[in-house]
Amino acid sequence: MNDLVKRLRALDTCAVSDAMDRHGLTGVVGGLRPLAARRPLAGRAVTVLLGPPPARPTASPRRHLGTAAVDASGPDEVIVVAHQGRTDCAGWGGLLSRAAAARGVEGVVVDGAARDLTEASEAGLPLFASAGTPVTARGRAVELAWGEPVEVGGIPVAPGDLVLGDAGGVVVVPAGRAEDVLATAEHIAATESAMAAAIEAGTPVSAVMGKSYEELTDGDR
């Protein structure tokens, strides 16, 4: 397992979001929630860009959307589908979920709707999206590109960026800033763990959540 992915997996989205704040970065993708196999996911991004089909298509798509990314992906990788927040049709479906799970893909993030959620759960594939829908992408959305920089919920995502998803949502860490962000997130998580232990030992929460807590996300001065 990649060391950065291993470290990311030990954190939660709250600690990573706080660390991003400290470094002046924005990486939380709003509106996404776990819809299938509801466990955390962590890995490096493999990107897929979707869009509406051309007004006058000259031929049927060469392949179904997402299939090339699935075939190229594996363990410690997260497929990120830029579906422009669309909920009128799915940007991901059941056969893709089964294929991704068979290849050991960590999970899938869809900026928009996904379908066949039961199949994804049966395959054990964590799937984060904004909504579920039974409506197919066929005739409504096509793959424009994969393996290229995309944007999901206003957040840029490049291939190889770190992606973490849990019950709190989804956060993306730029690959070039990953070491700094993870080190800060680890410090925040350790600090909050000590605070939690103090509360459980009987220390008043007003004393625990004092000035030092408020300054956890302050940038370097």
Rank of each mutant, 00 (worst) to 15 (best):
L216K: 03
E214I: 05
G66C: 12
L65V: 01
R39Y: 08
P159Q: 09
V5A: 13
A167V: 13
G85H: 05
A198T: 11
A129Q: 04
A15N: 01
T191R: 07
P53S: 07
S206Y: 10
G104V: 15
G210H: 09
L8A: 04
G27C: 09
L127M: 04
K6D: 15
M209H: 05
V78A: 09
H64G: 10
R140Q: 08
G24A: 02
L162R: 07
A45N: 01
L162M: 14
H23F: 08
D166I: 08
E122Q: 05
F128G: 03
V105S: 14
I199C: 07
V172C: 14
G112I: 09
A201S: 09
P126H: 04
V171F: 08
G160C: 07
R56F: 08
R62Y: 05
A178H: 04
A113G: 11
T87K: 06
T26Y: 06
A102E: 11
P54L: 04
A102M: 01
T191A: 06
T87H: 05
K211F: 13
S206F: 06
D76Y: 03
W146Q: 10
E119V: 13
R38K: 12
L41K: 01
L164I: 10
V173N: 08
L50C: 10
N2M: 08
A101D: 15
L95W: 14
S73K: 04
D88K: 00
G147Q: 02
V81M: 01
R63E: 14
D116I: 09
I155W: 02
V181R: 10
V205F: 07
G107I: 02
D21C: 12
V173T: 12
A113K: 06
R33T: 00
A69D: 12
A194E: 15
D166H: 03
A167W: 00
P204S: 13
Q84T: 10
E151Q: 06
V70G: 11
W92M: 12
G147L: 04
A42G: 15
L216P: 06
G210K: 07
S130K: 11
A175G: 12
E77Y: 08
V170M: 02
T217H: 06
P126W: 05
R22A: 14
H23I: 10
G74W: 01
A194G: 11
